[in-house]
Design a protein around this nucleic acid. Sequence first.
DNA 1: GGGTCAACCAAGCAAGCGCTAGTGTAAATG
DNA 2: CATTTACACTAGCGCTTGCTTGGTTGACCC
Lengths: 192, 192
Amino acid sequence: MNVINDSPRRKELTRQAAQLFVQEGFDRTTVRMLAQEMGIKSGSLFHHFRDKQEILAAVIEEGTQNALVIARAALDQCDNSAEARLQAMARAHLETLLTDRNAHVVALYEWRRLDPEARAHLSHLRDAYEALWEAVIDEALAEGLIHGDRFLVSRFVMGALNWTVRWYDPAGPRSPDDLAHELVAMITHRPA
Amino acid sequence: MNVINDSPRRKELTRQAAQLFVQEGFDRTTVRMLAQEMGIKSGSLFHHFRDKQEILAAVIEEGTQNALVIARAALDQCDNSAEARLQAMARAHLETLLTDRNAHVVALYEWRRLDPEARAHLSHLRDAYEALWEAVIDEALAEGLIHGDRFLVSRFVMGALNWTVRWYDPAGPRSPDDLAHELVAMITHRPA
DNA sequence: GGGTCAACCAAGCAAGCGCTAGTGTAAATG
DNA sequence: CATTTACACTAGCGCTTGCTTGGTTGACCC
């Protein structure tokens, strides 16, 4: 019947859906609203996605996958000091949070709306991303740059970073780079 | 027609609503589900609350008000050193996050579902709470216990703490006190 | 012992929901 | 040229939603 692959058209529709999901929330966004935003009728929407749930999964997958790619690239391009790597991860995290802001806000707020299968699939992606963080935290601990419990420190850092979507204003005076410096300085006690 | 005051019955209903809002999310929780949880019929619900929105506002107000009371009590009971006060705030924050967990999860996740009037009213409460935090952060900066931008540091700390609702397991080996110690140690660089 | 009032109920309305069925059509494919 | 494919349309089914209406109950009060 319908197409479930990842055509370029589907990518674009996914991007527009993310926008609406952020504005209205997943449950309040109707398939008719989505269709209107996409410039088609509601019936046509089900040619691209099996159901409404699948649109949510597509949005979150897109954002998480991008975050992984960007973080890996950032780690490849910086030197081996734990401080530089910590900085690079923080900065990469904040940058995806901005460039793919819609997708990430949806991932943070609407994760629980995913059905079990989609959640299991996306959990793996997210775990892979968090593993990058824990590796970098481990290096910083080994070098004595920071101290404390590996698990707790990484959760605290992720929390501080993810929370930025609630207050950060890209039009304000602070760049993502500023934020990354300030955060690393806070936990390493070296001047920003 | 209906009662809009804060009767004891209404308090209890609010507590039960919070539970359901956490489990299902605000939008997915129907008035029929709420009524069943409360042991009444859906029509009777509108004797206690003007509409569904008002239930959400009641849940969030309850949680935020409690957080304020607990934080103020914690600050009153500890000595004047910036480190002790930082510790006390972090601990108080984590304790409300646990004892009033449902209300706070709702406040974090469903804030955007509030209508503008309720949001404006509750914003003031939240601002009062955040002002307590900024005062304590200011003291710590003045004493040289921590360094950096006042605004950013308080946002990072609040993010790290609020994020705990996503991963913290009360049945696990770590107490809220442990978490507070570890967090303060992380940003002050003194051993936990 | 009539009046008041909070609390609850049964029944249902109007609107909106996700999704399906069946059809049209222009471009790509054999 | 005939067939398939991708994408869109119209129309509407079956169900759920938040909320209203009109009325009943039992405890308390002067």
